[in-house]
Nucleic acid binder design. Structure first.
Lengths: 370, 370
DNA sequence: ACAGGGCCGGGAAGCGCTTTCTCAGCGTTC
DNA sequence: GAACGCTGAGAAAGCGCTTCCCGGCCCTGT
């Protein structure tokens, strides 16, 4: 890889790269006001015992309101902030949960990170989860991973950094859900696990979504339907394909397998139209691929929706990047992520709780492409 | 917002939404093998004292190799994992650092999260930082934020969850760098701070990058150059514009301000060409906008690079999504993030260390668009 | 008015780990 | 052969916090 590192790149492992443009700048060392005050100091300042300060901080009901006020003033004056390590040592709670995003290996070293941070889906998940967790004052630690560092992730979880796990895993052979489950740590998975694990999960009715797409295309009078599916080793990919086909059982439905990326959608559309030039209705298993497919259709001179109607899946921001605007099946990703967080918090609060699954219904969002 | 929540949406605050499709599933409670073993148990199993176990775990040199082996076997047998809370209570280290991604407010509630997880830039940052941190066994806590929850972020940092902060902040008015600095926690910022704060930062030579773009366009014989800039309240946006103009001081350079998004690039290109239809060389301040601009140019019937040559900035994955493939100025984002991590670790290891800045050189990546 | 009960606040015991201090045991040297 | 130094391991002191337990106080009931 060619890089533009000033003064040369890293010269092997271990040592820091030599850099030409290091500038020491003048500075006055920040005052660092006497380290962090401890609870004892607050107690002394307020003239009470440490236990009382603790009660005030944790909102115990049985503290006289005058005393409570004094303590709060002392906290403000000293600038006291509880030490999380000490607290979680005794409470056995970290007040944070992990959002583990597990992607299958890809040839390129960092591409899984690239995919995670490029697909709007994950942003929606994060937004939904943080939104649900924030009122409970629980922090989210985002951990992207592929199978090469499952071990690291497991170790992280075992070390007690987090109270529970939200696990986003779509790949069929992914062993992480099982490993996490065996850890015994509270966890919620983002989709029905491929093997029967007794774990809570939240999912969308994939087949119903595919059916909504089929119905839309049929209602537009389209008769020669086809689909670009997701990877068939991912349950959601398979379910959407099967749902689409099942609802059109009386006719043949050509399909091409895609990879849920923009470029993959473009390629797949080209292949599909080469083999089946008369297609007039197309269901694409996610919006990103639909965006690529639309580009291919345009380059092939097909008008959308006149010549060929296109329905996507997700209702992600990519649907709005499309021209024409993409008609798509909406999954309420934010709400699903929020529900995952709620279920997880219930599991954390009640350790013995039986796993449960929650299924959300998709809806059709009609725009221009179909 | 219309959602497809099965059985209705949340019914007010506090209570969980009623959901139609909750299924309790049979399960055998996982065996949970006798909670977590403690160091004492390992010591007993190995027939040594707790202190010795600690020495083995932390690689103290003065442990007899036979004893070391016994302890390691005991650790393996008991499945012992150190408790991070207890450890960091005494070491005052958490072995994790925060990656705070601070985005300016946007009208839409969650859009900043959407932007963060959609722009490939952040994925590259994350990849670079995790890559550099992993060998040191330091974990990365990703914290996206906009100005509405600066307070939460600061509190999180003060609580001692992390040993240091990698701060990605581009917005000029962003007060977070200053707040973090005042906290006294080790920190490294992703770009030259807009106000003179004594803090370490890593940056790319923005003006040089703009100059590379200008040189490329000139060398292709283009004479009527223009640019789509980034937001001018973001230093990188301003620097790229000024660098481009400064290098072309002898001629007028029309420019339109964009917002670093795909859609913004498309709009900007339309406006630019409406006002200056004869432009034959275009510098776009990031790849995402360039992608949008290319789409606009295509719809306007301009051939790229024949009628108009286009150079982007970043060399992100979006450059490869473009048709034609985008010629662009590469910033070594992964390496820069890795360097940020290295500098941060140095600050953590040596608390009094003076701040320093590191500047990387951009390079031109020639593809098809110019 | 006095005894009993309820409440509030303080003392003290750890949570699991690291680290210093100390001492036992060994080899070494004159 | 005795004194010395060195190595290696154990004892113990906390890190900062929560929480149980108990003593003292005030309030109520009779």
């Amino acid at each position: 890889m060619t890089t533009g590192v000033a003064g040369g790149g890293p010269d092997g492992g271990g040592t820091r790269p030599h850099l030409a443009a290091i500038t020491d700048r003048m500075t006055t060392r920040p005052a660092r006001g006497g380290q962090h005050p401890t609870m004892d100091q607050v107690a002394e300042a307020a003239g009470v015992s440490r236990a009382t300060v603790s009660r005030v901080i944790n909102g115990a009901p049985s503290v006289d309101s005058k005393i409570r006020e004094m303590v709060q003033r002392a906290i403000a004056e000293t600038g006291y902030v509880p030490n999380v390590a000490a607290r979680s040592l005794v409470t056995r709670r970290s007040n944070s949960v992990a959002l583990v995003i597990s992607e299958p290996d890809r040839p390129d070293n960092h591409s899984f990170l690239n995919r995670i941070f490029t697909d709007p889906y994950f942003g929606r998940i994060t937004a939904g989860a943080t939104g649900a967790l924030r009122p409970h004052d629980i922090h989210l630690v985002v951990i992207p991973t592929d199978s090469t560092d499952h071990h690291q992730v497991i170790r992280y979880l075992r070390q007690g950094h987090v109270d529970g796990v939200l696990l986003i895993s779509s790949h069929e052979q992914d062993t992480l859900p099982r490993q996490v489950h065996e850890l015994g740590i509270p966890a919620v998975v983002s989709a029905r696990p491929t093997s029967p694990i007794a774990v809570s999960f939240v999912d969308v009715d994939q087949r119903l979504g595919a059916r909504l797409a089929a119905d839309r295309l049929l209602s537009l009078g389209r008769t020669r339907l086809a689909t670009i599916s997701g990877p068939l080793d991912i349950p959601s990919g398979l379910d959407r394909l099967e749902g689409f086909r099942a609802h059109l059982a009386d006719r043949p439905v050509p399909s091409v397998e895609g990879d849920f990326t923009r470029a993959g959608g473009e390629t797949a559309a080209r292949r599909l139209l080469a083999e089946h030039p008369d297609v007039d209705g197309l269901f694409v298993a996610n919006d990103l691929m639909a965006e690529g497919a639309l580009r291919a259709l345009q380059e092939l001179g097909r008008r959308v929706p006149d010549d060929i109607a296109v329905v996507g899946f997700d209702d992600s921001s990519a649907a709005l990047d499309c021209r024409p605007l993409l008609t798509t099946v909406r999954q309420p990703v934010e709400e699903m992520a929020a529900e995952m967080a709620e279920v997880l918090m219930a599991h954390i609060a009640t350790p013995g709780r039986l796993p449960r699954s929650v299924t959300f219904q998709p809806t059709l969002v009609v725009r221009e492409s179909a």
